[in-house]
Structure formats: C-alpha cells, structure tokens
Design a protein around this nucleic acid. Structure first.
Lengths: 254, 254
DNA sequence: TTTTCATTGTGTACGATTAACATAAAGAAA
DNA sequence: TTTCTTTATGTTAATCGTACACAATGAAAA
C-alpha cells in the first residue's frame, strides 16, 4: 500500500466517522530562550509545514476534539486551550496550489467536500513538558519562532497571526504565565515572556512591582545559579491566589 | 401541503444546498427605554422562542451567512457583527424535548445529521432602524429585555448569556455606542446604555467627563425638549475620531 | 587575588487617571 | 411663584502608571 493509497483511505475513514466539512486547527504556543514559539508539523514527503489539526468525531464535542489533538501532539492534558476564531471563508486558500504543494494524490477529491470550515484554537503550553509527536500526515514536527515561520500550507499563516493578535489582547486579563512557564522560574524570565508576547521591552523595575503586587507569586528560598551576575530568586505561581485573581478579573496587565 | 410537509421539504433543501451539520445563531442586541434588548422569533404554532439563525450555503463564507441572516431579520446591512463562540458540544440540548416543544413532525429525522454545531454571532443594532421580520419557521418576532427572556428552544438561553458576557468584556475596548444608539442622543441616554450592558449604575459626573474626554462626540446646538427638567444637549458620534480611537485602542471603558 | 561588568533587586518622585462627592442651572408641573 | 427632578460642571483625595537611580551580586576577565 503506497503512501498515496493510505492517504486516500485515511480520508475516507475520516469522512465516514467525522463531522463533514469542519476541521480544527491548534496554534500551540510555547516559550523558550526568550522567544515565543509555535509548534508545527511537516507534511509528509514535502518541505511544507502546517498547524496540528484534526477532525471532530460525530459524537464528540468540538472542544474535546481540540483537547485530543493537543494531547496527541504534545502528550499534555488539561491545558489552557481556547477557541479564538472560526475560519469560514468560502475560499480560505487556493486549493489547487495547496494540493500541489502537498503532493496530494488527485483521486483524492470527491472524498471530502469542496470547502472546509476550520475552528481555530490556541493553546499555551510549558515548552519543557512537551513530547513533540508527529501525526499520520507528517514526518516531522518542531517549534518555530513566531517571527521566523517556514513555508506554511493552507491559510495557516493567517491563522497564526490571528491567534497571536488574540493572545496579545487576552494578555490583559488572562493568565498566560501559569500556562507557558515551567514550574519554577525567575521574575526576569517571566518578564521575557511578556516581552516576547507583546513584542516590546518592559521596564524591569515596574514589571517586578506589578507582578509581585498581584500576589500570585510565591518566592522560593532557591536561586537560579550558574550564570555570571547576581543570581535571581526562583518563584512559583500561587495557584489559589491565581484562581482568585482570575475570577476577580485582577490580572489586568499591559 | 401542510405546514409539516413544508417543514420537511424545507429541511431537505437546506440539507442539499448548505454545509451539513453546521448552523449559526445571531444574538441581536438593541437598546430601548433604558433596557438592553434581544431580538427573538416565535416558533410557528408554538409558544416557544428562539434566536434568529440559519445555515451556510456551500459556496458562502460563514460571516456572509451571518450578515445575510441579520439582514433578512432586521433589514439592516453593514452592522457590527462578531463571532463570539462556537457551540460544539455533542449534546448541546435535549433533542427529543426540543423537538416535542417545537411540535416537529417525526419523519423529520434522517434529513439532517444527529448533532449540529452552531457558530454564535452577536450584533449591535440601532433599535429605531430595525424592521423586524419573521422567517419561514416563525410566525412572530419581538424584542425582549435581556433580564426577562421567554421560554427558549435549544440551548439559546446559554447562547444569549455567553453573548452578554462577551459584550460586557468587549465594552472595555470596543465601541458599542455607535452601533446601539440612534444618530442623535443625549449623554444621559448613552449612560443608560452603558448601565444596561454593565448591569450597574454609573456616576453621571464621571461618565460625562470620561465620555467627552474621548473626543468621539460632537455636541449639537439642539437639545432634547418636551420633558420636565433641564433639557439635555443632543450629541452625535464623530465618525472620524471614533475610528481613530478604535484603532489606537483608546476606547477603554469600565 | 582583584577588578570588571552585566544583571538583579529595591525605592522614589511625578504626572495621569479614577473615584467620591456638591452645587448651580434648567424647565415643566404644581 | 414655588417645587422638584434632571442636567451640567467642578474639586479633591487616592490610586495607578511611568520614568528614573543605585546598591548588591557573582562569575569572568585581568
């Protein structure tokens, strides 16, 4: 059975078991080495990349389908995962061009409707805890700097941009630190995250004042050592106060 | 041809021409007499109400479908209309109970998939400019106070609540006045709108200061007369400055 | 061993914004 | 003419955001 045959039978199964004409795409954000990263898959036998995505089983809720996709690609569960936009244009992307770049076998058409609507989700994950796993359609996966994306299939470039815009807006009253940072971190490291998302530098003195003022952090007795210069304290999020602040909408941050 | 037959043939046409298993629902907000209102339709031959909604033609973008539904129900075009949530639970509502309340003819099943995903849109409209128009499935339509909703079909009660939550959040950096108010209005009237959306009273002195400070209003030489007490000035939105403020994100308002 | 130097942690001062509060003017009704 | 409710506007104190300075740290360089 050739790859082409496998692909066709795969899509036939999907068409049978899943909601027809609807897909979902996950923009998985991570943070590493002062950069905001996005998780991508490389389409098999090509140099084209795309977002992890999937289809919705007929008896599955859409949010559950998104969780499932995320789990399968990262090994992580119970993540920060949010709908952010439905991509529903009748001509979201140039289908012929895309199929050609995907090296899609041509008997493929007919097994799937002409147009697909895609629900966009974005996830915030702890980069250090992810076990990157490629899917059936891809032979590699990797993190990319949001500022340096490779050649992307479909309208996935636009989807990532809309996700990023949404993330920047949500930063104002949503907790992004808890989801994107490892368990222990320093305040300067957290500041790098905010700077990476906002795309501009922040004043370290004001950042420190603001973030500690929210009383969502607990300072540990440990310090991050090994580097030149003064060793910074390690912090943890105070889960309880974090949730309280969330509910009260006190996490406003610009 | 009975109503029941018409209904069945209507759904057959929809199933043929539209994206299968996906619908959209519009929460149309208006403002009248100090109250925030929602536009609802009464399901034919019942006392049950529901949101205006519809399906997406196979070659139509989802946003266009929402505009179309909105135009057909209100006669208004080019409105403030936004996606706010995809309602994608596998069991969004009790289907048997709903069909019974709708007095749905039972041969109906089979013409449509078991579960429907619905994209929620919300619209902000000028109550005075709306021409309420019922659709094929309804024999009446009316505005309801968001606090006093009638018996609603499907999960439309939840959809309205999620829309309202979203509206309250968006109030912070989105312009709601321009879309919900008539062309000319007084500042106290605008304040009633903000109070209706937020669900709490605002200080009139601070409100006046804040709203005029945004320089998005133009004071006219007219006053609203006829009532006892001091007659208030009429204002208009300054479209140009309004757009500028929007782009700069200066419409923060709590 | 001493010096260097980027980085961390903390504090202060000023201006802008918000929130709380009072009073005079308008205008129809009594 | 008086009454009474609503509108318009001003003041003050508290809070928050922004700009800015300096001492402490600790490995690396000299």
């Amino acid at each position: 059975m050739t790859y082409s045959d496998k692909l066709i039978s795969y899509y036939k199964i999907i068409a049978n078991d899943c909601v027809l004409g609807v897909s979902l795409d996950c923009v998985i954000f991570g943070f590493h080495d002062t950069r905001l990263k996005v998780f991508l898959l490389r389409w098999k036998e090509t140099d084209e990349w795309c977002l992890p995505g999937g289809f919705i089983y007929k008896t599955e809720s859409v949010d559950d389908a998104a969780s499932r996709v995320l789990y399968e690609r990262t090994g992580l569960n119970q993540l920060f995962l949010q709908q952010f936009h439905l991509f529903g244009d009748a001509n979201r992307y140039d289908r012929d061009d895309t199929w050609q770049r995907q090296k899609m076998p041509m008997p493929f058409s007919g097994a799937w409707p002409d147009r697909t609507i895609s629900m966009g989700y974005y996830a915030l994950v702890d980069y250090t805890k992810v076990t990157p796993t490629a899917d059936f359609l891809s032979d590699a996966c990797d993190w990319f700097d949001v500022g340096e994306l490779p050649s992307l299939l479909y309208d996935h470039c636009r989807i990532i941009n809309v996700a990023l815009q949404t993330l920047r807006l949500q930063l104002n009253w949503q907790p992004i630190g808890l989801n994107l940072m490892p368990e222990k971190f320093t305040i300067p490291e957290l500041q790098r995250l905010y700077e990476a998302v906002l795309g501009r530098p922040l004043d370290s003195r004001n950042f420190h004042k603001k973030i500690t003022g929210l009383s969502i952090l607990t300072r540990l007795d440990e310090r991050r050592t090994g580097k030149a210069h003064k060793s910074p304290y390690l912090y943890q999020f105070d889960q309880l106060n974090y949730q309280k602040a969330l509910i009260n909408g006190n996490l406003i941050f610009v």
